[in-house]
Computed example of a mutant assay.
Amino acid sequence: MLSSGLRLAVTTFTVVPLRAGRVDRAAAGVAMSVAAGVGGALGAVLAGALLALDAAGAPALVAGAVTVALGALLTRGLHLDGLADTADGLGSYRSGEAALAIMKRPDVGPFGVAALVLALLIQAAALAALPGRPWPATLATVVTATAAGRLAASWACRRGVPAARPEGLGALVAGTVGPLPLLVATAAVVAVAAAAVPGRAWQGPVAVLVSLAAALLLVRHVVRRFGGVTGDVLGAAIEVTATLAYVGLSFG
Rank of each mutant, 00 (worst) to 15 (best):
147 A>V: 04
13 F>W: 13
180 L>W: 13
206 V>Q: 10
45 V>Y: 07
174 A>Y: 05
73 L>G: 06
22 R>H: 08
238 I>P: 07
44 A>D: 07
44 A>L: 15
91 G>I: 00
85 D>G: 12
63 A>C: 13
229 V>Q: 05
107 D>V: 10
121 L>H: 05
66 V>I: 15
176 T>W: 06
166 P>L: 08
49 A>K: 00
131 P>L: 08
53 L>S: 03
108 V>Q: 08
170 G>Q: 10
95 S>R: 15
211 S>Y: 11
171 A>I: 07
67 T>N: 07
79 H>T: 10
118 L>P: 02
24 D>R: 02
141 T>R: 04
143 V>F: 04
199 G>I: 14
116 L>Y: 00
144 T>S: 09
230 T>D: 09
155 W>P: 01
21 G>A: 08
171 A>R: 09
224 R>C: 07
93 Y>A: 14
1 M>D: 11
174 A>I: 04
89 G>M: 03
238 I>N: 10
220 R>Y: 02
215 A>T: 04
106 P>I: 02
182 L>Y: 00
209 L>T: 05
206 V>F: 14
201 A>V: 14
238 I>H: 08
172 L>F: 10
173 V>E: 03
14 T>A: 12
99 A>R: 03
240 V>W: 08
21 G>R: 03
30 V>L: 04
96 G>M: 08
163 A>W: 02
3 S>P: 00
69 A>K: 09
7 R>T: 05
220 R>F: 01
4 S>C: 01
188 A>W: 14
29 G>F: 01
